[in-house]
Write a protein that binds this DNA or RNA. Sequence first.
DNA 1: AAACGAATCAACCGCGAAAGG
DNA 2: CCCTTTCGCGGTTGATTCGTT
Length: 260
Amino acid sequence: MGRHSCCYKQKLRKGLWSPEEDEKLLNHITKHGHGCWSSVPKLAGLQRCGKSCRLRWINYLKPDLKRGPFSQQEEDLIIELHSVLGNRWSQIAAQLPGRTDNEIKNLWNSCIKKKLKQKGIDPNTHKPFIDKEISNENNITILDDKKIHEKASSIEVVPKHSSSDMSTTTTYLNDKSEHMSIPITIPNNNTNPFEAISNLLFPTPNSCENPPIVSSNAFSWQPDELLQTASDLMRSDWHHQINHRHPTLQPELLGQPTYP
DNA sequence: AAACGAATCAACCGCGAAAGG
DNA sequence: CCCTTTCGCGGTTGATTCGTT
């Protein structure tokens, strides 16, 4: 299952398509239709797998594609549809004639997400960022987006060592800009320290239903809430901030900050 | 003009669903 | 049903382009 059988064959080209390849594929599909994609490369005389041909046709060669930049109306529609459909790019694309799911996905990830964040809107929930609401209610000073990003870029998470009985691992949130480090002790049944920190910081009742907000393979994350909380951790009033923002957080797992 | 980082975009990969034997 | 093949989707990567210093 999974990978196409054709992908195992030797001598298949990968990477960008040449004009000659485009012409072959276009001619073939214009004359005969695509039919079974896995047989298209052979019939069209291409050293590509069927999957690659399908993608090239859908994203580039199909005659009814609309090229060029997205209009403001299209962007607004994408935002509206995303709030209802989430990351179902093909369904969103179906509502925008001439646009492909790949094109819309790229636009969302490179442009729209950023614009929404600048407006203080969480692109995942389409609602204002939670911390801002909390801070207004409770008169807590928070960092603005620019400062969060400055701060976040100086924060790293470093798994340091296991305890002698191997039951826990101590991980450190390091703030390079302020030369400060907070130890966090994590039970070893949490295999990914980053996920464990996420669960520690956000122990919501439905956390089991939500996917982890950290990436387990790349060991990196961006969610603003985590960055804001990491920033909280690094500040002098961190106990107050954390207890206020995340009342169910287990403070005994957090060590005292150190200042090397 | 050169170097560098950010933004953009085309294409690949892996997975689950659907189809067919 | 079960197994294999094919399709389609969403996430991700990497090359290229653009903008800034």
